[in-house]
């Protein structure tokens, strides 16, 4: 354990990066999931097709490939754009944090699309009818009736998506993000104790997963609180 002295700070900052990445990707994931499921459920054939293409592509492609594509691809794209303005520019780096969050959000968003779609279909149509009969607009019905009902159904599988999300953040190290794996690699250079250090990274992630699992359990309890009387 003495081998870690001096590295605790760095691991702390690395973990913070993981947390930031997680929340940014989470928000984007929910966004993509809602848009995707809406597109799949809509009567517009074009929207259906795009959403179907989206889920097929991002659920069937290795995550690391998506990351590499986004990172290198966006760097090339940005460089090309920059060269239009300043031909001297050789290479523009796209921050791995944003390439990573976007890529992960698109991947998990494709799973969330399916989850949300199923959950929306599970909403009692009677509730929607009642809302409309009371005079609520489409948008109001969506926000105040559909989404809360859908959320209760979506929560358990979405909890799993969040676990996948936090674990996928580790992959962003491959494209150079300075989070925990990066710190570990540096520490290994100095201490030559790869087992210990990667174990620390594993433990950090295990800690995060546990927090997420517990949080989801609490949320599920809260979401189902109105049902306890029926038990």
């Amino acid at each position: 354990m003495e081998v870690l002295t001096g590295w605790w700070d760095d691991f702390f900052w690395g973990s913070l990066v993981v947390v930031e990445l997680f929340f940014v990707a989470l928000i984007l994931t929910v966004l993509f999931g809602l848009i995707g499921s809406a597109a799949k459920l809509s009567k517009n054939r074009f929207a259906n097709a795009i959403a179907n293409g989206y889920t097929i592509v991002f659920r069937g492609t290795p995550e690391i490939l998506v990351l590499l594509l986004f990172y290198f691809g966006s760097a090339i794209a940005l460089t090309a754009i920059a060269q239009v303005f300043d031909p001297e520019v050789k290479f523009v780096d796209f921050p791995p944090f944003w390439a990573g969050s976007l890529a992960i959000a698109l991947i998990i968003g494709s799973y969330a699309t399916e989850t949300f779609r199923g959950a929306f279909l599970g909403v009692d149509p009677g509730q929607v009818e009642a809302a409309r009969a009371l005079g609520l607009s489409n948008l109001q019905t969506f926000i105040y009736v559909r989404i809360p009902a859908m959320w209760r159904l979506a929560l358990p599988p979405f909890g799993n998506h969040m676990l996948s999300l936090i674990k996928d953040t580790a992959l962003v190290a491959i494209i150079g993000l300075e989070e925990t794996l990066f710190v570990a690699e540096q520490a290994i250079g100095y201490t030559a104790k790869p087992f210990t250090l990667y174990l620390v990274v594993g433990a950090i992630y295990l800690g995060f997963s546990t927090i997420i699992t517990l949080t989801v359990m609490l949320c599920e309890k809260y979401a189902n609180r109105h049902l306890e009387i029926a038990k």
Binding site: L163, K167, D168, T169, A170, L171, A173, I174, L181, I188, P194, F195, T196, L197, Y198, L199, V201, G202, Y205, L206, S209, T210, T213
Partner: peptide, 16 residues
């Protein structure tokens, strides 16, 4: 199930 597979791979390949 709680740790990234990449970390598991690294532990086994680089760590062991």
């Amino acid at each position: 199930r709680g740790t990234p597979i990449l970390v598991q791979i690294f532990i086994i390949y680089y760590g062991l």
